[in-house]
């Protein structure tokens, strides 16, 4: 229960930060709120707001934001067996399958408390996130320059906090992160905003570099990422950049 409250408070504050950031980036208050109601997944919302603020390609920005929501599909896969919902309830339940509800549900010792934790957290967060988005969006106009309060660093800090546990999970993660950073930074001066982040998704290939075990097992597999060394992957990406820029 206390976990739930802590999570709720954290989400409330970041909802406020999102609302303020979105309006600062150039979304209207209505657009900021609509995104919270419909998308209800913070990282994607911050990402789209960032692209709008950067005056960049909305198509690529939208794709990037949606791709970022792909992790929720994985949570759904994991939770389906715990929640066991059908019909209309499943349609509604799907909307609150996010980082926080998954974290709470998977931290419970048994299925009953996992379900309780999931739905309590989900309903509370949906209410909190949307209410604080509205407050943040309306408050942003009165704040003045958001950089004065360091609000411009909130977006990256949110992403960093979400990334942290994954980054420390293994070497492949660190390799993917490094490759993604290089691709995104190299592409930023060349391409419309939003596109570099999309391109950086190809850095995922760096996570499939050969491990000794796999190479020994199936050396001839044509799909084996062992055939795509790190440098080759980056080179391939550069090629895509040139094509995308024309």
């Amino acid at each position: 229960m206390r976990d739930g409250l802590g999570v709720g408070l954290a989400v409330g504050v970041s909802g406020f930060a999102y609302g303020a950031a979105a309006v600062t980036a150039g979304l209207s208050a209505a657009q900021a709120c609509m995104l919270s109601l419909l998308a209800f997944t913070g990282a994607s919302q911050f990402a789209l707001a960032g692209v709008v603020g950067g005056g960049g390609g909305l198509v690529a920005g939208t794709l990037g934001a949606v791709l970022l929501g792909g992790r929720n599909a994985l949570y759904g896969l994991r939770l389906a067996d715990v929640l066991r919902v059908r019909g209309v309830r499943r349609v509604l339940t799907a909307h609150v399958v996010i980082d926080e509800t998954t974290a709470v549900a998977t931290a419970q010792p048994d299925r009953a408390s996992a379900r309780t934790g999931f739905f309590t957290t989900g309903l509370t967060l949906y209410a909190t996130w949307n209410a604080t988005t509205l407050l943040g969006a309306l408050g942003a106009a009165r704040l003045g320059d958001p950089e004065r309060y360091g609000l411009d660093v909130l977006g990256p800090a949110v992403f960093l906090a979400l990334l942290w546990p994954r980054l420390t999970a293994g070497r492949a993660e660190a390799r993917v992160a490094a490759a993604a950073a290089v691709i995104a930074i190299a592409a930023t001066p060349l391409l419309p905003s939003g596109v570099p982040v999309m391109l950086a998704a190809t850095a995922t290939l760096a996570g499939f570099l050969p491990t000794r075990r796999r190479r020994a097992e199936d050396p001839q597999d044509p799909q084996d990422p062992a055939d795509t060394p790190d440098t080759g992957g980056t080179g391939g990406t550069r090629g895509t950049e040139a094509g995308g820029g024309s």
């Binding site: 990282a43 911050f46 990402a47 960032g50 950067g54 990037g64 791709l67 970022l68 792909g70 992790r71 599909a73 994985l74 660093v153 977006g155 990256p156 992403f159 960093l160 979400l162 990334l163 994954r166 980054l167 492949a172 993660e173 993917v176 992160a177 490094a178 490759a179 993604a180 950073a181 691709i183 995104a184 930074i185 930023t188 905003s193 570099p196 982040v197 391109l199 950086a200 998704a201 190809t202 850095a203 995922t204 996570g207």
Partner: peptide
């Protein structure tokens, strides 16, 4: 599915910073 978010989040941090 585990690694795609790592790539996207890192890229977002780099770009927005």
């Amino acid at each position: 599915t585990e690694l795609v978010p790592v790539a996207l989040l890192t890229a977002l941090i780099a770009v927005q910073t």
